[in-house]
């Protein structure tokens, strides 16, 4: 049911332009709902305290010895994400036609209603997972 509602919202949003006030209002409303859902669903249900989470990456050396494949996988993810950020920054700084930014590529993808709707639907799913996913049982 939630997926159907998300798909319908995404299709409606896909028909809006990025300069329209209704597009701004709906995106802001979704962001606000995301934070509200996080707060309401999350009280006392986080897996680890924030202080422990912050220290997590610094335990990498110990973790590497414990679970080599897992640590190597995390390192590859880090390299890939940093490569995307670095290349995007490089393209942004040079501002050349031959160096499209991630933003301009997404701009092409979201220029049509189906494209904008599909990207919006993915964004809704990701937001839902971040806001509500992986809670400790009450």
């Amino acid at each position: 049911m939630a997926l159907v509602a998300a798909a319908a919202t995404a299709w409606w949003e896909g028909g809006l332009g990025r300069d329209q006030a209704s597009a701004h209002d709906s995106v802001l409303a979704v962001i606000g709902l995301g934070f509200l859902a996080t707060a309401l669903a999350g009280v006392g249900r986080q897996a680890v305290p924030s202080s422990q989470w912050v220290k997590g990456p610094f335990a990498l050396r110990r973790h590497l010895a414990d679970a080599r494949a897992s640590a190597l996988g995390a390192a590859i993810w880090t390299v890939l994400v940093l490569a995307v950020i670095g290349w995007d920054l490089n393209s942004f700084v040079h501002q050349e036609h031959d160096l499209p930014t991630l933003s301009s590529i997404l701009g092409h993808l979201t220029a049509s209603q189906p494209g904008r709707a599909v990207v919006f639907f993915g964004w809704l799913l990701l937001g839902g997972a971040i806001a509500l996913g992986w809670r400790r049982p009450r």
Partner: peptide, 28 residues
Amino acid sequence: RWFTQSWLGRVLALCAWGGAGWHVFCQR
């Protein structure tokens, strides 16, 4: 899931998600 382990990670991920959505759907 790694980001959703703690309040701080979840809020940071939500901020990034919201900022990206605003940029892609309202600013680009």
